[in-house]
């Protein structure tokens, strides 16, 4: 490519549109014909398409079957994100401030870290899939035997159905360890202990000291704290965040606000007087303002916006 962009932006945009349409795998014969017409209509159209094609030349050298090139780029990005967290001026101040409020500064040095509003997907050797909810910190130890997931903060959804028995993961938290037995389950830490909800299959639970506490099956949520396993639920459908929503059924307002808070920049607080109000509904995580409005309409509460970044839910 030369260094002078002599093509009008509209032509570049059209070429991008066509490139995406043609590569999407959904283009039909009529669209392919239209594309050909577009290319033939103007010499500059063809030139724009060729320049976009040159992007492929940049990628081609890195395309190697059987070698983990994409993994390398992912690994590089993760390490950078971590380092940026540790050395990036203003960003550090903000993260540390958030960390102090959340009581967890240590999450800056973890293998996988998601920030507010972020989710991340992992695929472990052996085929287990892991999804990190927002504000989550996770270390992955995948050597010999079971992959071990050390959950430091936040929430993960584990799907090990496809993994062979020897590759089923183990999740470790401060409160104990959870061994997957062919299964899909959600684990969260924070507040009081470790929350566990099994969606499919079974999970064997051990306390931090190693004593077995039994197996958990689908049906209800459990809480592991202080060496005991007890029924405990947030009233939120496990894994609903993976679908981009908070699905609440008779959930305490505090739990709903906590879930929304992971998808909102700034501070979202509430009066203790409203914390236990029961909420039922489905709220979009990508529009938490709308979710707060909906809550204010259905409960005796009002949402006080002091600034864009400081919001508090109070008794009406």
């Amino acid at each position: 490519m030369n260094r002078h962009d002599d093509l009008p932006p509209a032509i570049i945009e059209a070429a991008i549109h066509w490139s995406v349409t043609m590569a999407s795998g959904t283009a039909d014969a009529a669209q392919r014909r239209d594309y050909q017409h577009w290319l033939d209509a103007d010499e500059r159209h063809r030139r724009a398409a060729e320049r976009l094609g040159a992007i492929d030349d940049e990628v081609r050298g890195a395309r190697r079957a059987g070698l983990p090139v994409t993994d390398t780029l992912d690994h590089l990005q993760r390490r950078r994100r971590r380092r940026r967290g540790l050395g990036g001026g203003l960003l550090v101040l903000v993260l540390v401030a958030v960390g102090l409020v959340g009581g967890d500064v240590s999450r800056l040095s973890r293998d996988y870290v998601t920030g507010t509003g972020e989710q991340q997907r992992l695929r472990l050797p052996g085929g287990t899939r892991v999804v990190l909810n927002a504000d989550t910190a996770l270390d992955v130890l995948a050597g010999e035997g079971r992959p071990t997931l050390r959950l430091h903060a936040g929430e993960i959804l584990v799907d090990s159905e496809a993994a062979a028995v020897a590759d089923k993961p183990r999740v470790v938290t401060d409160d104990g360890r959870l061994d997957a037995l062919g299964t899909r389950f959600q684990v969260s830490v924070g507040g009081s202990g470790t929350g566990l909800t099994v969606l499919q299959g079974r999970v064997a639970v051990h306390a931090a000291g190693g004593e077995p506490l039994g197996e958990v099956r689908p049906g209800r949520g459990w809480r592991l704290a202080d060496g005991t396993l007890a029924p405990g639920t947030t009233g939120l459908r496990a894994g609903s965040w993976e679908d981009g929503v908070v699905e609440a059924r008779d959930a305490p307002l505090a739990e709903v606000l906590k879930a929304l808070g992971h998808y909102r920049a700034g501070w979202l607080g509430y009066d203790q007087a409203v914390a236990g109000l029961k909420v039922t509904g489905v709220f979009q995580l990508n529009d938490t303002d709308a979710a707060l409005d909906a809550i204010a309409q259905s409960l005796p509460v009002r949402v006080v916006h002091r600034t864009r970044w400081w919001v508090r839910v109070e008794k009406k």
Binding site: M1, R3, D5, I12, E13, I16, H17, S19, V20, T21, A23, S24, T26, R51, L52, A54, I55, E58, R121, E242, D243
Partner: peptide, 26 residues
């Protein structure tokens, strides 16, 4: 794989192409 809609993938792809085009054109 990313649990997003096809149109989101297409939008992201367009964004990426626009970005690469600008970088390569200096």
């Amino acid at each position: 794989r990313l649990s997003v809609s096809l149109s989101t993938v297409e939008k992201d792809m367009a964004l990426a192409l626009r970005h690469c085009y600008r970088v390569l054109m200096g």
